[in-house]
Design a protein around this nucleic acid. Structure first.
Lengths: 197, 197
DNA sequence: CTATTTCTAGACGTGACGTCTCGAATGAGA
DNA sequence: TCTCATTCGAGACGTCACGTCTAGAAATAG
């Protein structure tokens, strides 16, 4: 789904092959790690030709980005729940649940790493993943602002930088994931209850 | 300085060659980018043999990690300045200044990316860079706690995750660096003034 | 039936990898 | 002064994934 337009003539793209390639990429990443993941290996495991992979995805990272959307549930709830704190809590729990999904953390690590090496992929990663997640949280903050439910001085962009910064830093630099205490601490902080009991 | 022990006999390690290699690696990274940085290229630019590089550093990322310490001023002030807010401000300004140093951002990006690919290097990166920076900020928070100068519910570890999360997320996922407004916002947040004017 | 596109399969030249060998230079201990 | 361990620059070597390419079969719309 990354390359090309759909022509009206000729053989149609095989959905079965597409799924086989995405699954092979996802599984191989958990088995051998992203650095040892090769296009040739993906094609071999999927029973596909190399050219088929190269035709539809520019890099192995792009394959993995699409595989992530296939394997993990990337939906984020942005339903109006009445209060900023409640919606923030929901958002943080959803994010923690995503990270707990098997194979997601190594894949996210690999994608962010690849985004540092390849500027073109960085933009695709931003458009296809990062900004979507940001948009969800920013919606929550902006709705709180409209309700008058939001701490002063807290812009949507800054809140997103803080929350995603915390999540990504945990994934990339430490080995710990978000737990219940972290969620509580973030809620307390963004609600402005950090100074008193 | 990463490999080997110092024997008592034989020719001594050439400090001049060591500096030439570190300088070549740093400059080449800014010129061609980390992915196109090769050990062979480093050796060639430094006028050194490949074996000389391989003898002292296990990967090109380790060369760059040491080059960073050589090129940029990694000192962090942790002097007691009387108040949490003042020391936090100093820390944030020092961090912003480091990022503004020529070539530092691309190098940091590359090191964090490599840390995701190579678990062994990740530990060296943590020990040689990440935890040192964390320790400085944690000292500031703990000193504030001892003074009774610190917001309740703010642990040193969580504060570090938040601040470094913000900084790294900005570097890795967006293109923006910390500016004065960001520093103000972080100080306001961590001091517990986010809810009122 | 024809034109077009996708499919699997694999050959091809390229380039960096990490190891190895070579002979010269260096320097501490005998 | 001699000896010998160690580092030095230089580069040869086989290996492996890269991305491109060709070939021929299969599928599909006009």
């Amino acid at each position: 789904m990354t390359g090309a337009t759909t022509p009206t003539r000729g053989r149609k793209r095989s959905e079965q092959t597409r799924l086989a390639i995405l699954t092979a990429a996802y599984e191989l990443t958990t088995e051998v790690g992203f650095p040892d993941l090769t296009i040739e290996g993906i094609a071999a495991r999927a029973g596909a030709g190399k050219q088929t992979v190269y035709r539809w995805w520019p890099t192995k990272a792009d394959v993995l980005l699409e595989a992530l959307a296939l394997k993990a549930d990337l939906k984020v709830s942005i339903a109006d729940q009445g209060s900023f704190d409640t919606e923030l809590d929901t958002f943080l729990r959803d994010s923690a649940a995503l990270m707990a999904f098997p194979g997601v953390v190594p894949v996210l690590r690999s994608l962010m790493a690849e985004a540092q090496r390849d500027a073109d992929f960085r933009h695709r990663f931003q458009d296809g993943f990062l900004t979507k997640r940001r948009a969800a949280l920013e919606t929550v903050v902006e709705r709180a602002a409209a309700r008058g439910d939001k701490p002063a001085h807290l812009t949507a962009a800054f809140a997103a930088d803080l929350v995603f910064g915390l999540i990504w830093y945990r994934v990339l630099a430490t080995e710990r994931l978000l737990d219940q205490d972290d969620i509580t601490a973030v809620r307390r902080l963004l609600n402005g209850h950090s100074g008193e009991e």
